[in-house]
Amino acid sequence: MKILLVEDEVKLASFIQKGLEEVGHQVAHEVNGSQALETAAVEQFDLILLDIMLPGQSGFDVLKNLREFSIETPIIFMSALSESDHIIKGLDLGAVDYVKKPFDFEELKARIRNVQRKFGSKRASIFKLANLEVDLIKHQVIRGDKLIELSKREFSILELLLQNANRVLSKMEITEKIWNINFDMGSNVIEVHMHQLRKKIDHDFEPKLIETHVGYGYKIHGELIKQ
C-alpha cells in the first residue's frame, strides 16, 4: 500500500516508516498538516496515518480540509490523546480507525490490513453462496431476504470459511487466523462461535451451508460466486 504518514515526532515517524517499509508498504512522511495537505493533493495514497497533535493545524483540521478538497483517502488517526471524546470526534469526522499511542506495531499492521481489505478495490468484496450474500466492505450478511447481524469474530469466521469454501478448516487453523491468541485446549471458543454462526446463518434456512467434521473442523459448502 502507498501510505502517507503525518507525524511531527520525527523519531517515531522514522521507526513506523521503517517498520511499514519492511513489510512491503511504500511510505511518505510529512511533519505538519499543511505539508500533508499539499502532498495528499498532488499524490494518490491508499491510506493516511494522521497524528492529531500537529504543529499548525491539528489532525482533525487536516481531515476536514482533505474532505473539502474531495480527497477521500481512508485515514487512521494515531494519537496519545486517548480520551473517548477524541476517538469519537475522529471517527465522527470520517476516520476509519483510531490507534492509541503507544501502540504495538502488530496492532497498527492489523489495522492497516483491515483497511486494505475494506478499500482494496482489486479484490472481490461480495461473496455469494446459495442464497447467502456477504458484503466484506459494508460488513453486511443477507440470507434469503433477511439481514443477519453478526459480531466482529462471527463475521471474520464466515469470511474465512467463504474464502476457503468447500475445504475443511481445522479448529487450530481457525483459531490462528481469527484470534491470534494461544488458547488452552480446554477453551470452547470455536465451538461456541460456530454454534452461534450456524444458528444465525443456517437454523431458519435451507439448504444448510455449514458442516461440522467431528474431531477435525468445519466447512462451508456450495458454489461460491465472488463479485
Binding site: 466482529k152 491468541i181 494461544n182 488458547f183 480446554g186 477453551s187
Partner: peptide
C-alpha cells in the same frame, strides 16, 4: 469481541509471561 481485542493486544505480554489462556463461554 472486546475481550478478544484486549487479549490480542496483550498477546505479547501473555506470551512473554508464559501463560496459557483457558477461555470458556457458556454454550
Amino acid at each position: 469481541d472486546l475481550l478478544y481485542d484486549v487479549l490480542e493486544k496483550m498477546n505479547h505480554s501473555i506470551k512473554a509471561a508464559a501463560f496459557h489462556l483457558n477461555l470458556f463461554i457458556e454454550p
